[in-house]
Simulated scan of single mutants.
Amino acid sequence: MYVYILTNTGLTVLYIGVTNDLARRLYQHSTGRGDASKFTGRYQADLLVYFEQLPDAAQAISREKVLKGWSRAKKNALVAAFNPDWKAIDLETWEG
């Protein structure tokens, strides 16, 4: 299971989600780009800037709730510690 953070090209929004298949979920976000009925589509947040793998769904959901409760500054610090340049992460080439 994964908890992940997406942003848009302007870095103006953060979206936090949870999934069991990160590659599939990123594809779903990218194909929904521009869909005003969805948060990630409305704000074009489809750039992966952070993720962490957790052993099971309960832990992933719990971690997602914790992150969603954080201030924007704390979320920014988490991303910056993991991905200092805030570059979009390509899962096929990420060496983390």
Rank of each mutant, 00 (worst) to 15 (best):
M1W: 06
M1T: 08
Y2I: 04
Y2R: 04
Y2L: 02
Y2H: 01
Y2M: 03
V3G: 00
V3D: 05
V3N: 05
I5G: 00
L6E: 01
T7S: 07
T7W: 05
N8W: 05
N8S: 07
L11K: 06
L11W: 05
V13F: 09
V13E: 07
V13C: 08
L14S: 05
L14V: 04
Y15T: 06
Y15W: 09
Y15P: 01
I16Q: 03
G17S: 13
V18E: 15
V18F: 09
T19E: 14
T19W: 09
N20V: 14
D21R: 08
D21F: 07
L22D: 06
R24N: 10
R24F: 14
R25M: 02
L26T: 01
Y27S: 14
Y27I: 07
Q28Y: 07
H29M: 08
H29I: 11
H29E: 12
H29V: 11
S30P: 00
T31F: 10
G32I: 09
G32C: 13
G32P: 05
R33C: 12
G34I: 14
G34R: 15
D35G: 08
D35Q: 10
A36G: 06
A36E: 12
S37N: 11
K38R: 15
K38W: 11
K38Y: 10
F39M: 06
T40C: 07
T40V: 08
G41E: 10
G41A: 14
R42T: 11
R42P: 03
Y43W: 15
Q44G: 07
D46V: 02
D46K: 05
L47M: 08
V49F: 04
F51H: 00
E52K: 03
E52Q: 04
E52P: 07
E52C: 01
E52D: 00
Q53D: 10
Q53Y: 02
L54S: 07
L54M: 02
P55D: 08
P55V: 11
D56N: 10
D56Q: 09
D56M: 06
A57R: 08
A58E: 13
A58D: 14
Q59M: 11
A60L: 01
A60G: 12
A60K: 00
I61C: 10
E64F: 05
E64I: 04
L67V: 06
L67A: 04
K68T: 12
K68Q: 14
K68P: 12
G69L: 14
G69H: 14
W70R: 13
W70L: 15
W70C: 15
S71C: 14
S71P: 15
R72L: 15
R72W: 13
R72E: 14
R72N: 12
A73L: 15
A73Y: 14
K74I: 14
K75N: 03
K75I: 05
A77V: 15
A77I: 15
A77R: 15
A80D: 08
A80I: 02
A80T: 06
A80W: 06
N83D: 00
P84V: 01
P84E: 01
P84N: 07
D85L: 13
D85G: 09
D85N: 11
W86V: 03
W86M: 04
K87Y: 09
K87I: 01
I89E: 01
I89N: 04
L91E: 07
L91F: 11
L91Y: 07
L91N: 10
T93H: 07
T93W: 05
T93F: 03
W94H: 06
W94A: 03
W94P: 03
W94G: 04
E95H: 03
E95I: 02
E95V: 04
E95L: 02
G96F: 00
